[in-house]
């Protein structure tokens, strides 16, 4: 799977520990992401997937181990958080657009205020990206006028417009109905084709299989299995993965 241009390590997590009070949310977790690689994190609720993303984006402190982004240690940083977060694009489960700003203003706020880029230039970029996700006509709509799927696509564009090194997706389709889920996931698939480095948390197994270079299965804060999609779905090693995959199929028939 690792061809030449995937060798550069973007994200390196080593022996990460994260505790809430006395409970471990993440236990001795190590994971590497190479440039242009798409890693999908799966596992049952509460296994620490979302917490891991929040740690990477510095929304949480960690109690041990370290996280490196492009070779620089970022975990537990107290200063220059902004500099690091610019390199990390994150899209959350709940559509968190800013409700008082229209679509375009949502997208250009951070590039202008944080990266101090020229407004005209950012607007141009934003419009190109909006077109790519099929929302060129919605630049001046308010978030309240958009569907859930449209909001999530705008949130993705907002993260993309910062030109991040890596994109984190935290169950971005969890609150969407199937059609909207599809339109959002298609955007993420396209990003993968464009060669973006991504860490995706999802419950959509079909999608995971389609988009992932590697699937990482987590349970109780640790990685149980990390492998290519074919092996993960066809011949999982661990009993826990088998049990997890079984929850997506219904073998029992009605009597």
């Amino acid at each position: 799977m690792l061809d030449e241009n995937k060798k550069e390590v973007i994200l390196e997590i080593s022996h990460l520990h994260k505790k809430y009070d006395e409970n471990f949310a993440i236990k001795d977790l190590s994971l590497k992401l190479h440039k242009r690689e798409v890693v999908v994190l799966v596992g049952s609720s509460g296994c620490g997937k979302s917490t891991l993303l929040r740690c990477i984006n510095l929304l949480e402190d960690v109690q041990g181990g370290e996280i490196k982004l492009c070779g620089e240690t970022i975990s537990n940083r107290k200063s220059n958080l902004s500099e690091i977060r610019q390199k990390i694009g994150m899209v959350f489960q709940n559509y968190e657009l800013f409700p008082h700003k229209n679509v375009l203003d949502n997208i250009i706020l951070a590039p202008i205020k944080v990266q101090k880029r020229k407004k005209e230039e950012v607007i141009e970029d934003a419009k190109v990206l909006l077109k790519r996700v099929g929302l060129e006509g919605k630049a001046y709509s308010m978030p309240s006028q958009l569907s859930g799927g449209q909001k999530q696509r705008v949130a993705i564009v907002r993260a993309l417009c910062m030109n991040p090194e890596i994109l984190l997706f935290d169950e971005v389709t969890a609150s969407l109905d199937p059609e909207m889920t599809r339109e959002v996931l298609e955007v993420i698939l396209e990003l993968a084709d464009m060669g973006k480095t991504m860490l995706v948390v999802t419950h959509e197994m079909q999608f995971a299989r389609a988009v992932a270079d590697r699937i990482v299965f987590m349970d109780e804060g640790s990685i149980i299995e990390a492998t290519i999609p074919e092996d993960f779905f066809e011949s999982p090693n661990s009993e826990k993965v088998k049990a997890f995959l079984d929850t997506f199929t219904y073998k029992q028939k009605r009597k």
């Binding site: 958080l81 902004s82 500099e83 977060r85 959350f92 944080v114 910062m162």
Partner: peptide, 9 residues
């Protein structure tokens, strides 16, 4: 969180 995640101070 969304604002902070975008790097806003």
């Amino acid at each position: 969180e969304s604002a902070e995640a975008l790097g806003l101070s």
